[in-house]
Design a protein around this nucleic acid. Structure first.
Lengths: 209, 209
DNA sequence: ACCTGAACACCGTTCAAGT
DNA sequence: ACCTGAACACCGTTCAAGT
């Protein structure tokens, strides 16, 4: 639950030598990520680096010391949010009964996708800084969803043949920003995955191109 | 088939007074749109205006005279491509048998969506210059697809209850760039819409939130 | 080790001067 | 009417100077 900064930075484009940052450096990174998240949320990901630096109370040079390119800062913020979303699965699983936990997490996930539209648009920009994000996304979120799916399936509330990776992608793609309709589409999709009696048997993946 | 420039410019953010441009102005606009399309395709939509102006053989001022903001140029290029895609429906309908024409057009449409990913990412940027594009997109492409669907349905090759607007959106959202898998997903989706005998009757929209 | 901010390069946009 | 391109403002990124 407590954020492990070393692990988090391990995925940034640094070589080695990221253990034991000086206390002020650590603090700066934290404030930078917090501030950037807030600024991106209100002004979009195109917000000037200078503005973020100023609001975080550091010089621009400090931003570039920790995040060599502007896109590295964006990617780091994105990873933080992915982590938080993955953590939510554990929390919800402990707090709610399986079907309920899955429902709640999917809503949480939709919120995440919807809020991060600007970022997800950046993903398609071809910028190498974002190259590893889809992988990180899947590696973190797939196990989180898989756990919830398995529990729901064990409770007989959900089909057992759902690939979490595919579901993550499908939901993300069905989501469009501030669009009420997309939520309905997602609800329908999830509804279709729900296992109800022998009326419509889950088709074992139909072969074909 | 021949492009009507006046109509095309009618959707740009000008007031009135867009009839009968001077011949050189007309030529400049054409070359600008052609050049921009090519440059965007290779360097992405972030390509500098200066580069486009230079390659089109005009001064930057000329670009800004016709397209007050950089995003207006992008939007104009996008509209041109939408027009071309809509025109393709008429051509394909005349040239191929209904089911075949639909298949071919959907592939054409997927090509369009895939190639224009950078642009579609821009759509979610909140830039007002792109605000009217989704509407233009639907107004141009929906009738195009609708015609093809109706002919295919009349020939008994396709379900008759498919909303062309929804299908356009769904396919666009399932499309991710240079992703072979997305094409499979689209193929599966369209396959599911195909009407085959009474084994799986088309469900009349199930009510529910 | 790490921070700062002036300085540099580049890009969107404007506008005075041309034809 | 329309074109040109130098000039301006702004933003990403660097780096010499500081602690």
């Amino acid at each position: 639950m407590v954020r492990d900064e070393a692990q988090e930075r391990g995925l940034e484009p640094r070589g080695r030598a990221d253990r034991r940052l000086r206390a002020d450096a650590q603090r700066n990174i934290d404030r930078l990520l917090q501030t950037a998240l807030a600024v991106f949320a209100t002004s979009g990901v195109d917000a000037p680096v200078r503005e973020i630096a100023e609001k975080a109370g550091v010089g621009v040079g400090t931003v570039y010391r920790h995040f060599p390119r502007r896109s590295d800062l964006i990617a780091a913020v994105f990873r933080r949010e992915i982590d938080a979303c993955a953590d939510a699965a554990t929390i919800l699983a402990a707090e709610y009964e399986s079907g309920d936990a899955l429902d709640r997490w999917l809503r949480r996930y939709v919120d995440f996708i919807a809020a991060k539209r600007g970022l997800s648009a950046a993903l398609h920009s071809g910028n190498p800084a974002f190259e590893s994000l889809p992988i990180y996304f899947q590696e973190k979120l797939r196990p989180a969803l898989q756990g919830l799916l398995e529990e729901a399936a064990a409770a007989g509330e959900m089909r057992a043949d759902i690939d979490p990776a595919e579901l993550l992608l499908a939901v993300a793609r069905l989501c469009s920003p501030n669009d009420q309709q997309s939520r309905r589409m997602v609800a329908l999709l999830v509804d279709g995955l729900r296992y109800r009696a022998p009326s419509t048997p889950p088709p074992s993946s139909r072969s074909g191109a």
